[in-house]
Design a binder for these strands. Structure first.
Length: 560
RNA sequence: CGGGGCGUAGCGCAGCCUGGUUAGCGCGUCCGGCUGGGGGCCGGGAGGUCGUGAGUUCGAAUCUCACCGCCCCGACCA
């Protein structure tokens, strides 16, 4: 089958929509791949859907290859399942009612539903299981953005494994991890699998797949030598050494009138910011006030603080600070504070300037372990200039898109939903689960972010909507169109997906549209070369360009 | 939810500050013609509740208020 462009709907645009920012957003819209219906709601136009289906097919093949069984679970979900796991209160859940007033939710993902089905697993003899589906997810995102990067409704491939023990879980998890690597490799997507935070998934352990990109919501921290990679939120990194003045035998009060910022403090005392400490009082859910302490030139990572406490906390109010410290923000410090102090590892050794818990005063020479007893934890957010924790090499920071996330969630869902099995020893045990998600739409956006030039998308062959784009520069000449048709037929018969631009348009427009659509291979049939019985051919990425005899086109395409 | 920006023809924009006949431009689109290897040219045409509502005014795209929508930053976030 030849796809004749004169009959297809590929609404390309000369200009990008004014409100587009991300490259993938601009190019997918300009290329006629997607259209916005409302904030975070997108239609995949015909060629966009072709691309999505190709990505899905690659995922499907790799999931099947590790024993995945495709199924389909409904979107509309009874809230009872989510009530049981305690996830019903998540604000991103869309809720609705039927005509009788019965409530339903649109699930963010399908752990509850799949675990509901896993209750039919009776025996260890049935384990392990790996199930997956491609299904619509709806999320009441507070802020959709960046075209396909963050949307309110999207199709996700979510897979779920069930195992009898930790060994099995590890095996399933690693099988999926390797499958994901193969999937992204086949999509020509550069990704890094990094340890991630589990968030609301209740998981014990999770891995993010981050694709470096011009726009994205994550920051990938990667060692120049390839020894380490992590998401900025939880990445470990070695800060540059602090520039410390000479030590003191005991803390020494120094008056610092009106100084309430680290910059101001360092300047006032004539020291480096790294020689100061920054105190952030937070309140835990139980009401306890904890002082988090990082080096003055560092930023506190909220994710790491969450892990260290552990649990959610909020910044203390001015009143709470006044009561606990007897001083206001800007003059706070660990010395003399009665509550718990959690200090960043960077403060383990050396003496730092800290707030004196008296407005307008600080302490010089404050030393952990001597002047106060903190609990140490990694609290700092990595920054440019840090070194790799493995090899000491330079760290590279890049914005990235999270294209996949895999979790080991243990019995988080199976316990409340009572999904158990009878083990070999006759004991009833909770199933151990993992979940594995990929958003094909995000993958599409990430591929475009990584494969484009100033003229449009440069699709990898594996997911291009059409592998070969034949341009008929006929200018109304019937014989050129006939030849182009014959070339397209030859390729099509050989198994290639061919898009034939048989429209009555000028050459410039056809070239521009072909660049936007981005098929990896292009064959140009025009009067100019036809006189010599030849056509021009070129790869979209510019790596090859030339002229071949018309009977050699199939050979060129096959070799390219 | 906080901060900022925008809303005028299918797309991209001007006009608004300083209110005044039929609201403009480019592209696209339709008809005719010339063209035909990187968005070509000539001629003719169609297409707009100026986001919505209220108000000020003799008169509102333009000034005021409210609301809605969209984008960006933050909060948030499998």
């Amino acid at each position: 089958m030849i796809a004749r462009q004169s009959q297809l709907f590929i609404p390309t645009l000369r200009e990008a929509p004014a409100d587009a920012d991300a490259v993938s957003h601009k190019l997918l819209v300009r290329g006629g791949y997607i259209r916005q219906v409302s904030a975070g709601l997108w239609t995949f136009m015909p060629i966009g859907w072709r691309v999505q289906r190709k990505i899905e097919q690659i995922i499907r093949e790799e999931m099947n290859a590790i024993g995945g069984q495709e199924m389909l679970m409904p979107v509309l979900t009874p809230p009872e399942l989510w009530e049981a796991t305690g996830r019903l209160e998540i604000p991103e859940i869309f809720r609705l009612k039927d005509r009788t007033g019965r409530e339903f939710i649109l699930p963010l993902t399908h752990e509850e539903t799949v675990t509901f089905h896993a209750r039919e697993i009776q025996s260890y003899r049935e384990l392990p299981q790996l199930w997956y589906h491609f299904q619509t997810k709806d999320r009441d995102e507070p802020r959709p953005r960046g075209g396909l990067l963050r949307v309110r409704e999207f199709v996700m491939k979510d897979g779920y494994s069930f195992d009898r023990d930790e060994d099995g879980v590890r095996t399933s998890f690693e099988a999926n991890r390797e499958a994901y690597k193969r999937i992204f490799a086949r999509c020509a997507l550069e990704t890094y699998d990094v340890q991630a935070e589990s968030g609301i998934m209740g998981g014990k352990f999770s891995i993010d797949f981050l694709a470096p990109s011009g726009s994205g919501e994550n920051t990938l921290v990667r060692c120049e030598n390839g020894d380490y990679a992590g998401d900025l939120e939880i990445a470990q990194a070695v800060p540059p050494p602090a520039v410390l003045p000479d030590g003191l035998t005991a803390p020494e009060k120094v008056e610092t009138p009106g100084v309430t910022t680290i910059e101001g403090l360092a300047e006032f005392l004539g020291i480096d910011q790294s020689a100061t400490s920054k105190a952030m009082p937070v309140v835990k859910p139980d009401g306890a006030l904890v002082l988090a302490l990082v080096r003055g030139d560092d930023r506190l990572s909220e994710t790491k603080l969450y892990d260290a406490l552990p649990g959610p906390s909020r910044p203390a109010t001015d009143d709470e600070i006044r009561v606990a410290f007897g001083a206001g923000g800007g003059s706070l410090g660990p010395v003399g504070f009665e509550g718990e102090v959690v200090a960043d590892e960077a403060l383990r050794d050396g003496q730092y300037v800290a707030g004196a818990n008296r407005d307008g005063w600080h302490l010089r020479g404050v030393q952990a372990g001597r002047d106060f007893e903190p609990r140490f934890a990694d609290l700092r957010e990595p920054r440019e200039g840090d070194r790799c924790p493995e090899c000491g090499g330079a760290l590279i920071f890049r914005t990235a898109i999270e294209v996949g996330h895999i979790f080991n969630f243990g019995s988080f869902y199976s316990k409340p939903l009572e999904a158990t099995f009878l083990d070999e020893d006759g004991q009833e045990k909770a199933l151990l689960g993992g979940s594995y998600g990929i958003g094909p739409g995000r993958v599409m956006a990430a591929i475009v972010e990584q494969h484009n030039d100033e003229n449009g998308i440069v699709w990898p062959a594996s997911i291009a909507p059409y592998g070969v784009h034949v341009l008929a520069l006929h200018g109304g000449a019937e014989e050129v169109l006939t030849k182009a048709d014959a070339v397209a037929s030859t390729l099509s018969d050989a198994g290639y997906e061919v898009l034939l631009d048989d429209r009555d348009e000028r050459p410039g427009e056809k070239f521009a549209d072909a660049d936007l659509v981005g098929s990896p291979l292009r064959v140009i049939v025009g009067k100019k070369t036809l006189e010599d019985g030849a056509v021009d051919v070129r790869r979209r990425d510019g790596s090859a360009e030339g002229r071949v005899a018309i009977e050699d086109v199939l050979k060129w395409v096959t070799d390219a």
